[in-house]
Nucleic acid binder design. Structure first.
Lengths: 235, 235
DNA sequence: CGAGATGTTGACGACCCTCAAGTGCAGTGG
DNA sequence: CCACTGCACTTGAGGGTCGTCAACATCTCG
C-alpha cells in the first residue's frame, strides 16, 4: 500500500458490480464472484493488459489506477484513457485477436471478466449478463462519441478545457472527487490524445491557470471554475 | 428512382441481416422480417432519424444513402458519419432519451430494429440477438477508436488522407466500390468532423489531387494511389 | 544519491484559420 | 427551355496559433 489514498471505485460503483449481480452473485462486497471474474488483480505501472496481436479473452474493469489505449504503430498514437469504474476491451470484443494495445498508467488493480466462460452460463443468467454488457458497450460508445467532440474542437485552449471537464465528469460518474484529481497520464500522452504538441499542452494549462480557472501543480489538477471552462467551449 | 446507381448494400452484407438470421428469420432476401424490423423505410435528404431529447426506440441500419451524427449544440459539431451497412444509435442504446441527433445526408433507405420488442422474444432467440448486437456494438466501438486516430493526426494533410482511406475501407467492408465513391457530406461537415476549417479541407484535397494521389470532382472521389496515402500517415 | 525520464521555457517559422470576394451547380418558377 | 436564386464550393491575402527545436529545470525511481 504505497499510496493509501489512490482513488478507487467502491464495488457499488464498479461497472462489473452490476455484471456480478446479474450473474446471480448478489453480494455487495463482491466477495462471492466465481471463476469467470478475477477480482482485484494488481497491475504494475506500465504493465500490458494486452498488445495488438494477442488473442482476446477478457474484459478489464479498472478498479484503481488508470489505463491507456493506443494503436500498435510507431510512433504510438493514444486512443483513449480508462479511469476507475470503466471497462477496457470493448473495441476488440468481436475479434479473435486484439487490434489495439492497452497498458496500465499507474500501479492499480483490475477486475477481469473471462469472455470464454460466458457461453457456459445457464440461459437465464446469460440473458442478464448480455443485456448488461450491451448497455455497458453502448455507454462506452457514448463516451467515445463525447470524447470525439473534444479532439474536433478548433483551438488548443478549448480542447484542454474540454479534456479536463471530461475527466472531471468521468471521475464524478464513479463517485470520485471531480474538482481535484491527479492526472494519470503524462503531458505527452495528453498531447497525443488531443492531437497537440506536448509544449502546447503545457502552455495552455499554464494559461488557464493564469486566469484562475484551474490550478496545476505537476499532475495534480484543481478545477476552480467549471462553468467558466464550459463557457470556453460554447465560443 | 431518381438515382438508380445509389450505392446500397445487398442484404447479405447488411449488418441487420445477421440480426434477422439470429431472430430465426433465415430468408436471405430479408422478405420475412416480422414486426420488430421495419424494412427499407425510405428517408428524405435531411430527414431526422432522431434529435437530442427524443425517446430511444430504434436502432437504424443504413441500407442506402448515408447519415450524420452530431451533438445538439450550436454551432453543431459533427461526431460521425454512417455509411450503408452501418448501424446508427448505439451511442444512446442504454439511455431513455437520445443525447445526440442523427439526420440523413441523402435520400436513401433504412432498416429499423425496434428495441422495445426485444424482451418479448423467446430466450433462445433473445440470446442470439443479444450476442449479435453485442458484437455489432463492439465493432462500432472499434470503428470509433480507429476514426478517433484520424482527428488526432497533427497535419491537415494526414487527416484528410486518413479520412479518405477510412471511408474507402468502410465502403469495401460492405461490398461497395472503395476506390471511387461519392462523398455523402459537404466540405463543411468534413471540416467539422476533422476539426479543420472548410477552406483547409478544400485546399488539402486539391493538394492531394495535384500530386496525383486522388481525383476530386465536386463530391466524386477517386483514390489512385492508396499506398501513397498510407505512407503519408506513417510520417 | 545519482541518472534518466518528464516537464518547462523561449525563439522562430510554418501551417492553418479568418475574412472577404467570386464561381459553379441545382433546384425553382416563369 | 431558360433565367433566377440560393447554397455549396473555390480562391486569395493576411495574421494568429501552434509546432519545432534546443536548452534547462524538476521529478521519480533505482
Amino acid at each position: 500500500m504505497a499510496r493509501p489514498s489512490l482513488p478507487a471505485v467502491i464495488c457499488r460503483d464498479c461497472a462489473l458490480y452490476h455484471t456480478a449481480r446479474v450473474l446471480g452473485l448478489e453480494s455487495p462486497d463482491c466477495s462471492q464472484l466465481d471463476a469467470m471474474v478475477i477480482r482485484n488483480r494488481p497491475v504494475a505501472r506500465g504493465e500490458a493488459l494486452y498488445a495488438a496481436g494477442d488473442p482476446v479473452r477478457y474484459l478489464y474493469l479498472v478498479h484503481s489506477g488508470a489505463c491507456i489505449l493506443h494503436d500498435g504503430r510507431d510512433p504510438q498514437q493514444v486512443t483513449g484513457f480508462f479511469l476507475p469504474g470503466e471497462i477496457v476491451g470493448f473495441e476488440d470484443l468481436d475479434a479473435e485477436i486484439h487490434g489495439f494495445s492497452a497498458h496500465a498508467l499507474q500501479a492499480g488493480s483490475l477486475c477481469l471478466l473471462d469472455l470464454t466462460g460466458l457461453d457456459q452460463l445457464p440461459a437465464e443468467r446469460l440473458i442478464g449478463v448480455q443485456r448488461y454488457l450491451l448497455k455497458a458497450a453502448a455507454a462506452h460508445a457514448r463516451l467515445l462519441q463525447r470524447e470525439r467532440l473534444i479532439t474536433g474542437l478548433p483551438s488548443a485552449e478549448q480542447r484542454i478545457a474540454a479534456f479536463l471537464l471530461g475527466l472531471a465528469k468521468r471521475f464524478q460518474a464513479h463517485g470520485l472527487p471531480s474538482n481535484s484529481f491527479r492526472l494519470p497520464m503524462s503531458r505527452e500522452e495528453i498531447a497525443s490524445y488531443l492531437g497537440l504538441a506536448p509544449e502546447t499542452v503545457i502552455r495552455t494549462l499554464k494559461k488557464l491557470a493564469g486566469r484562475g480557472l484551474v490550478s496545476v501543480r505537476a499532475r495534480q489538477i484543481q478545477i476552480h471554475d467549471p462553468s467558466a471552462l464550459e463557457r470556453l467551449l460554447a465560443a
